[in-house]
Design a protein around this nucleic acid. Structure first.
Lengths: 125, 125
DNA sequence: CGGTATCCTCGACGATACTG
DNA sequence: CAGTATCGTCGAGGATACCG
């Protein structure tokens, strides 16, 4: 079977290993280089496309659009288009997206705790 | 700057966006298709190489070895070699690895909550 | 401003063969 | 049993150009 597999996850083993299914699912909807950070960036408030792009800095327009579309398709963010000239588009977290924030917060906390050490110990590498 | 970037994360923006650094770090050490699940599988007890391979099923030996080596290099798992014939190698979580379990548990919980729905609603797709 | 469309690179991963 | 070595594929993501 193995649906929901945009990013190369066929995962037939899901059939037998039901317990692991949840992890695989969550990993799948957050696959990609920028999704965690986009969600984190949307935490305080909705953001315009250009704000997100400026924050991420070195992301290409194509990639950003793709990641946003995928997040929208998974129901994690809402895309609000204001029919103005020039156009304005604002992205915000849905409730399903907000429920990911505890995970992202934990990851931030974990990285702050262990990442700094790596940075120091790599100083010479 | 931008060290710790095995998987294509240059991330100059880390310099300005310190807050995001933790997320990027954690995402980096868990990059790869199998790492979450390997860690999850090591939760109850240490496991032999062949046990892990059997559980994951459709992973190639090369990939599994690579993922395990990366996890070991990041200090998330411990590799215990028993000099026997035939050889026996057991992998176990380190304390740094165990501290990731809350994150993985949350992901499992999240996926169980939302993933099942997708599976049902995709039944026709 | 907020996208599309197209091309290209590059690295993760699988397949296969071989080994101490 | 637990790897190593080599090769090939495949797709994510960047670069660039253009559009309503």
């Amino acid at each position: 079977m193995a649906r929901l597999c945009k990013d190369g996850f066929e995962r037939e083993f899901i059939e037998e290993q039901r317990e692991v299914y949840g992890i695989a699912y969550t990993q799948n909807i957050l696959s990609g280089r920028w999704k965690y950070i986009i969600l984190w960036f949307l935490k305080p408030s909705e953001r315009r496309y250009s704000e997100i792009k400026a924050f991420l800095g070195n992301i290409s327009q194509g990639s950003l659009t793709k990641q946003l579309r995928e997040l929208e398709a998974e129901g994690l963010i809402h895309r609000q288009v204001y029919p103005e000239v020039p156009p304005r588009v604002e992205y915000s977290l849905t409730s399903k997206g907000k429920e990911l924030l505890p995970i992202i917060d934990l990851m931030e906390e974990y990285g702050k705790k262990f990442g700094e050490q790596v940075e120091l110990s790599n100083e010479q590498a």
